[in-house]
């Protein structure tokens, strides 16, 4: 950690601080999106930025995600470094053509004439009773697209460092913020009291500038018997379950799905011989399938058991049955039993 003085922040405050640091350092950084300006965003992630940096650098937009990202592509072509917010990841689909066919491909198709340093921030994931239109985890749609980076932080400290790295990156980045843990880490027990970030060591966020490189995972717990691969909210759920079950596990917080830190994954699985992949997104064609395939391709002769996946179910996110859907401690526990057997 840098030597700068640190304060306790929740993830929203850390993201807001990262945006402020980025805007202070670089005049090209421009924030746009629905409700991000005067009001400061429905989750308050852009609070105060318009007052500090002015209306031409932080502004509200019409409700058209296609337009928001299309305009961001044009701004990047001009030479700015736009940071559009898509209010919920569930709303990102109208912007898909601009992301998939334009932002992601422009460096390639123009042979470097028009790089696209755009960071699309968007709250994602469930566990907040958001129903099917405020709970989705569409990360695998973006990891499937060549030319996009996908980043998902799990703590305030990481959120700030990764967001600054994403904004400074010269390629387009999808930055998904797990909104369930905006205000505190989540152990997966929805019926227990919510914990604030303040008690968590990674809520201590240094002031000023620092980055966490994209493509580097964090080994957040070290063990010998099992490798758990997770990101976002599920890192905290995984840690809690592993502790409760007393499993001696490595827990790897991937932090960046694309590019992926394959070295950390490989060395951990080769050490433990067992691997559990966890994500909240739907199962079929999810990023867990990619992780499972990679582990199988690269670590097959080290594996003691088939790679296990714990995911959301292949249904829309159900409102009233949210906790039966969510890949919580029971589903993870059952998977651990299976992967640890013989």
């Amino acid at each position: 950690m840098p030597d700068a003085p640190a304060t306790n922040m929740n993830m929203i405050e850390a993201i807001n601080d990262a945006l402020s640091v980025a805007m202070e350092r670089d005049l090209d950084v421009t924030v746009l999106g629905e409700d991000v300006g005067y009001f400061g965003g429905v989750f308050r992630a852009t609070a105060g930025l318009q007052k500090t940096y002015g209306k031409t650098r932080v502004f509200d937009t019409p409700i058209t995600e296609c337009g928001i990202v299309g305009v961001a592509v044009g701004m990047a072509a001009y030479g700015l470094r736009p940071v559009p917010e898509i209010q919920f990841a569930d709303y990102i689909y109208p912007a898909l053509d601009q992301l998939v066919s334009e932002a992601a491909r422009l460096r390639y198709r123009s042979a470097g004439e028009f790089p696209m340093p755009i960071t699309v921030r968007s709250p994602f994931g469930g566990g907040i009773f958001g129903g099917q239109t405020h709970s989705q985890s569409p990360e695998a749609i973006f990891t499937h697209v060549c030319g996009l980076k996908t980043v998902i932080p799990s703590t305030p400290y990481d959120a700030k460092g990764l967001l600054l790295a994403a904004i400074e990156d010269n390629d387009p980045v999808i930055f998904f913020e797990p909104k369930r843990i905006y205000n505190g880490p989540f152990d997966g027990h929805y019926d227990r009291p919510v914990q604030p970030w303040a008690k968590h060591p990674a809520s201590l966020v240094p002031s000023g500038h620092y980055t966490i490189p994209l493509g580097k995972a964090a080994l957040v717990r070290e063990g010998q018997d099992l490798t758990v691969l997770a990101y976002g909210t599920m890192v905290h759920v995984a840690l809690s379950v592993v502790e409760e079950l007393g499993v001696d596990a490595d827990v790897v917080d991937l932090r960046t799905l694309m590019p992926l830190d394959i070295e950390t994954i490989e060395s951990s699985v080769k050490k433990t011989g067992r691997c559990l992949v966890i994500h909240e997104a739907t199962r079929t064609g999810g990023f867990g399938a990619e992780l499972s395939a990679l582990v199988q391709e690269r670590c097959f002769y080290y594996l003691e058991a088939p790679v296990e996946r714990v995911t959301g179910f292949d249904t829309p996110y159900p409102h009233s049955l949210e906790w039966a859907y969510f890949p919580g401690p029971i589903r993870i526990g059952m998977a651990i039993e299976k992967v640890m057997k013989d």
């Binding site: 299309g70 701004m75 001009y78």
Partner: peptide
């Protein structure tokens, strides 16, 4: 796709 991009470029030019 180029139409909102042109608008974004123009907005950037005006903002600057």
């Amino acid at each position: 796709t180029q139409v909102p991009q042109a608008v974004g470029w123009a907005m950037a030019s005006a903002a600057r």
